[in-house]
C-alpha cells in the first residue's frame, strides 16, 4: 500500500499543470463516508516545516557537503589551531630556517610547508591565520545582518518617509567602494586589531543586506497572510516578527553567506595593503604581502597562505549557492 503521506516523499515539483502533485493523496477515502472530510490518511504524516524541507534538500547536495566539511574544519582550526601543530607560528629561526623548502614527508610537522623569510613555519602560520579570517568574516556578517536586516525591515515595513530616509542613506553608503572606504576608516586607527577591521567592514557593508531585506519585506508585506493577521487585529510587532521576518529572511541568509567569503577576502586585501591587521596578529593577507618579495626564490611562501584564503572564500560562496538553491521559493 503506497503511503500518500510518506514523509520521505514530499510532493514538490516544478511541473506544468500538475498542481495536483501538491495535493496529498487520497488513500482511504473509499471508506470515508463524510464527504466533508477530504482526507483521513491511514498513517500519520510527519510535520515538516519549510526549514526542515530546505535542510533535507541541502543535505542531499554534494556542493553543500563539501563546503560544510571545509567550513567545519576551518572553524575548528580557527578555534584550536594547536590541535594540528606543535609549532609556534611566531617562532622565527632565521639562522636555520630562512626560506627552507617544504619537507613533503614531514606530515603535519613544522616544516611541512617550508619556512618563510623570517624562518617561521608556514604550516603553523597558515593554521593560525585562519582565526583572524574566520573571526572577521563571521563577526562582520553578524553585524551586517543585524544592522542591515533591521534597517531594511523598518524601511520596507513602514514605508513613507522612514523608507525614504533609510533608502537615501543606503544609497549614499552604497556609493563608497568597500576597500577605499575601509582604507580611510582604518587609517584613523593608530592601533588596528581584528575588531577595528570588523568595524570598518561592517560600517560599510550593511547596505547590501538592508537592500535585500527591504525588497523581501516589501514582497512579503503584500501577502494575504499578513493581511489576514491584520484582520485578526495583530499588532506591528507580531506582524513583523511572526509573519514577515521568517518569510523574508531567506534571501538575506543567502546573500550574507556569500558575502561572508567576500569579507574574508576584503580583510586579507586590507592586511596585504598594510592597512588591515598588523603584526603580531597572524593573517594570510600579511603573509602573502611579505612573501611577494621572495616569490622567485620561495614561491611556497606565497602559495600556501594564498591557497588557504582561496579555499576559505570558495567554501563560503559554495555554501551560499547551495543554501540559495535549497531555499529557492520556486521549488516550494
Amino acid at each position: 500500500m503506497p503511503d500518500p503521506f510518506d514523509p520521505e516523499n514530499p510532493t514538490h515539483t516544478r511541473l506544468p499543470d500538475t498542481h495536483a502533485l501538491d495535493y496529498a493523496g487520497n488513500q482511504g477515502m473509499a471508506v470515508e463516508q463524510d464527504q466533508l472530510l477530504e482526507t483521513r490518511p491511514e498513517k500519520r504524516e510527519e510535520a515538516r516545516s519549510l526549514w526542515q524541507d530546505a535542510w533535507r534538500d541541502l543535505r542531499r547536495r554534494p556542493i553543500f557537503l563539501v563546503s560544510a566539511v571545509l567550513i567545519v574544519l576551518l572553524v575548528i582550526i580557527a578555534i584550536f589551531p594547536g590541535l594540528f601543530t606543535d609549532a609556534d607560528p611566531r617562532h622565527a629561526d632565521l639562522v636555520n630556517n630562512y626560506l627552507k623548502k617544504p619537507n613533503w614527508t614531514d606530515f603535519f610537522g613544522a616544516g611541512w610547508f617550508g619556512y618563510d623569510g623570517q624562518g617561521r613555519s608556514i604550516y603553523a602560520r597558515v593554521l593560525y591565520g585562519a582565526r583572524a579570517s574566520i573571526t572577521v568574516g563571521i563577526c562582520v556578517t553578524l553585524a551586517v545582518a543585524i544592522t542591515g536586516g533591521l534597517a531594511g525591515m523598518v524601511a520596507g515595513y513602514f514605508g513613507g518617509w522612514v523608507d525614504a530616509l533609510i533608502s537615501r542613506l543606503v544609497d549614499i553608503f552604497f556609493g563608497i567602494p568597500l576597500l577605499l572606504g575601509a582604507l580611510v576608516i582604518l587609517n584613523a586607527f593608530t592601533h588596528r586589531t581584528v575588531w577595528s577591521v570588523v568595524f570598518a567592514l561592517a560600517f560599510l557593508g550593511w547596505t547590501q543586506i538592508a537592500r535585500v531585506m527591504r525588497g523581501a519585506v516589501l514582497t512579503v508585506k503584500q501577502a494575504d497572510y499578513v493581511t489576514a493577521a491584520r484582520a485578526l487585529g495583530a499588532g506591528t510587532r507580531r506582524i513583523m516578527f511572526r509573519h514577515i521576518l521568517p518569510n523574508a529572511v531567506a534571501p538575506v541568509i543567502v546573500v550574507a553567506t556569500i558575502a561572508l567569503g567576500g569579507y574574508i577576502a576584503a580583510e586579507a586585501t586590507l592586511s596585504y595593503l598594510g592597512i588591515g591587521l598588523q603584526d603580531p596578529t597572524i593573517s594570510w593577507g600579511i603573509d602573502i604581502s611579505s612573501a611577494q618579495n621572495v616569490i622567485r626564490t620561495a614561491p611556497y611562501a606565497l602559495f600556501f597562505p594564498a591557497a588557504a584564503l582561496s579555499i576559505t572564500v570558495l567554501a563560503f560562496i559554495m555554501l551560499g549557492d547551495a543554501v540559495r538553491d535549497a531555499l529557492d521559493p520556486k521549488l516550494r
Binding site: A47, S49, L50, W51, A223, D224, Y225, T227, A228, A229, A231, L232, G233, R242, H243, P246, N247, R332
Partner: peptide, 20 residues
C-alpha cells in the same frame, strides 16, 4: 475585529508558510 472576519481568495498565499 472579533466580530467581523474574513476568508481570503487564494489559499496558497493566505496562510503563513512558516507556521503550523
Amino acid at each position: 475585529r472579533r466580530n467581523i472576519q474574513m476568508v481570503f481568495q487564494d489559499p496558497y498565499t493566505s496562510l503563513n508558510p512558516r507556521m503550523t
